[in-house]
Design a protein around this nucleic acid. Structure first.
Lengths: 226, 226
DNA sequence: TCTCATATTCAACGGGTGTTGAATGAAGGA
DNA sequence: TCCTTCATTCAACACCCGTTGAATATGAGA
């Protein structure tokens, strides 16, 4: 009598749903991603998601739990005082880290979109999980100040905010606006913009503004500018 | 038979609806603000909004048309080559401008939230209306480069993006996170953070990193840090 | 007083949302 | 073969959304 009811897939495990959710979050933002859209992406019914996760917020937190700790571990390693690199090299390594983990495209938009807005509960979930990264970053800055590399009159939390927030903006904006101002491929333009940003930033926060950068000063040549 | 149908207000003109919409946009973001919420804020029925505006997007564009041109006019005045101020003074004046127009709290979140996401049509509406500001800003930078104040190896569009995007981030974040890192009042912490940011930024983009700032270097004292 | 343009509301439409509960599929063990 | 457990779907709930059309209240002018 009723239509035959058969699974569309032999097996669809928790991780597959999580991966689909990450893709949809990346496209639509956390608020804009609907359970039905995630289900469509995963190739199943929306109800199945509730078999694995309590609700939408639980998916979100599961993504954070999976993706953030590896980043935090690497930042903590950089903050280790026995790491022989200069502060500039360490901070540039953090930028590379964020660059790489954001080209796995979901996480950044997930975090950025929810860090402030998007319901206070979700905001707190983000802030709580990102705290270890923040702590390690501040340690890098304080050590840089003690070693006479970073200006001592800058509050580390602001120095960190400047660096990371702008990196997030660059990751968001430059690939989109690159064709408007350069003939470079978006990917190459992104890398250049990151280097230019770090050049400006490090010159701004270093005790010695002419201190060498951890990469050759390859800026954008005039003939590549539009 | 049916309940008596009477207006709740003697008069509610287009501007009152617009003001209510701006307040709700500021609280909820453009996407998150519902017509019914705007109507509730204005104290009328949602249908009345459609008497004055074609649809939701029309409200949004009306807000931009009302608020953006005054800012653009002031930035253009700063870009005028006959303005005798230094480039640093001009750029700091732009920051003050954005600070002031954003404490009329709606506009910034309206623009920020919609510049990238929030439907391509709305994105274009923002970009199109902000274009005059962008043009004037780039003129300021180019002039600064010709006068030997700004490093000639920086693409003006990136220099502009660094300055304004970070100012937007500061306006968003610092009032919220101030209590976590300083004993200053949020308002005062915001002003200090803006000065610190401009200090770092100008040191990064100036030809002479020790060039004087347009304000006394009043940073955050250690005893005000937490 | 009657008329008419303006201002405002009510009720509904179609569609999307997160979520739930019951029903049914497949698969493995006794 | 039967039973149980896991995986999956269907159908529905209550609610919110932007928008529309018809109805009605208001106030000014003739």
């Amino acid at each position: 009598m009723s239509a035959p009811r058969r699974p569309k897939h032999a097996r669809l495990d928790r991780d597959a749903v999580l991966a689909a959710a990450l893709r949809v979050f990346a496209r639509e933002g956390v608020e804009g991603a609907s359970m039905r859209a995630i289900a469509r992406e995963a190739g199943c019914d929306a109800s199945l998601i509730y078999y694995y996760f309590e609700n939408k917020e639980a998916i979100f937190e599961a993504i954070l739990d999976e993706r953030v700790p590896p980043i935090a571990r690497q930042v903590r390693r950089l903050a280790n005082p026995r790491d022989p690199r200069t502060t500039a090299e360490k901070l540039w390594a953090v930028i590379r880290l964020f660059h790489d983990h954001a080209s796995d495209p979901g996480l950044r938009s997930v975090i950025k979109g929810q860090a402030l807005r998007g319901g206070p509960s979700m905001g707190n979930a983000v802030v709580r999980r990102l705290l270890p990264i923040q702590v390690a970053m501040r340690a890098i800055f304080r050590r840089g100040q003690r070693r006479g590399e970073v200006r001592p009159d800058l509050p580390p939390i602001l120095a960190m905010m400047f660096l990371l927030r702008m990196e997030a903006e660059i990751l968001d904006l430059v690939p989109v606006m690159a064709p408007a101002f350069t003939t470079l491929e978006p990917e190459e333009a992104l890398l250049r913009a990151e280097r230019i940003w770090f050049d400006v930033y490090w010159r701004g926060i270093a005790v010695d503004p002419s201190a060498p950068l951890p990469f050759p000063p390859a800026l954008i040549a005039p003939e590549e500018l539009r």
